[in-house]
Design a protein around this nucleic acid. Structure first.
Length: 218
DNA sequence: ATCCGGATCGCCT
DNA sequence: GGCGATCCGGATG
């Protein structure tokens, strides 16, 4: 214990981007494994990055909550594209949401990133979200994290292996620290357990009441 | 040309 | 917990 205890420097370690192959798997597996990875966006204003703490899977035309349920259109086209690209869409007239496309070309599916924990550029994130008082509210939602990281529609279709938009490998999150629940904010297929988050992480967007942990702590 | 609903957020009670 | 903001994509006429 008196040994050289160098502080953990995960914040400043520059890990390689996850390869296309990472995304060319079942969407559920990709969603699970993206926990702990680092989503990074580079703009003229600077670099901002966050550790992924919450994801959801949207899988194919038979998943009525997936945008591909309506078939291939100009909007949903990226879902049908190659794995490892971005699908960024506009919602409710004001917000962008970021997804990583999975599986294979012509197999429309993606992982929605619902929350990240700031890792790089937190000052930049605060400037981009001037009305936010507490740092915990900077990136704890799919629309919020796009505002904070600077992700917009122009990032749609971009590969995630190089700037300006990429996802870097992170420290793996063990199963014991992962919770699975139904997805949030949808009405179709609302009971399918396709949401993953790091248990008790303060940046997770929210927990549905019936999945709240009890005071018993189990 | 018009209508409608949405993978959200922030402010209100 | 409720609700308005705000606008695009897709469907319908």
């Amino acid at each position: 214990m008196t040994r050289d205890a160098a502080p953990r420097a995960r914040r400043s370690r520059l890990t390689p981007p996850l390869p296309k192959k990472f995304y060319a798997r079942e969407t559920e597996q990709v969603a699970r494994d993206l926990l702990g990875a680092v989503l990074e966006c580079q703009t003229p204003d600077g670099v901002a990055a966050g550790r992924i703490v919450e994801t959801e899977a949207y899988i194919g035309e038979h998943d009525l909550a997936c945008h591909a349920a309506a078939g291939r259109t100009s909007r949903t086209a990226p879902l049908y594209g190659p794995p490892g690209i971005a699908y960024v869409y506009f919602i409710y007239g004001m917000y962008w949401c970021f997804n990583a496309v999975t599986r294979a070309e012509h197999e429309p599916s993606a992982v929605l990133v619902r929350a990240v924990e700031p890792v790089v550029g937190i000052e930049l994130m605060r400037r981009r979200r001037p009305r936010v008082r507490r740092d915990v509210d900077l990136t704890n939602g799919p629309g919020k994290l796009c505002l904070a990281l600077g992700i917009v529609g122009e990032h749609n279709w971009l590969p995630l292996q190089r700037p300006p938009l990429l996802i870097r490998a992170g420290d793996p999150v063990p199963d014991e620290r992962v919770t699975v629940t139904p997805r949030i904010g949808i009405t179709q297929a609302a009971d399918w357990p396709l949401r993953w988050f790091i248990t008790d992480n303060p940046y997770v967007s929210k927990t549905p009441p019936h999945f709240k942990r009890t005071s018993a702590g189990n």
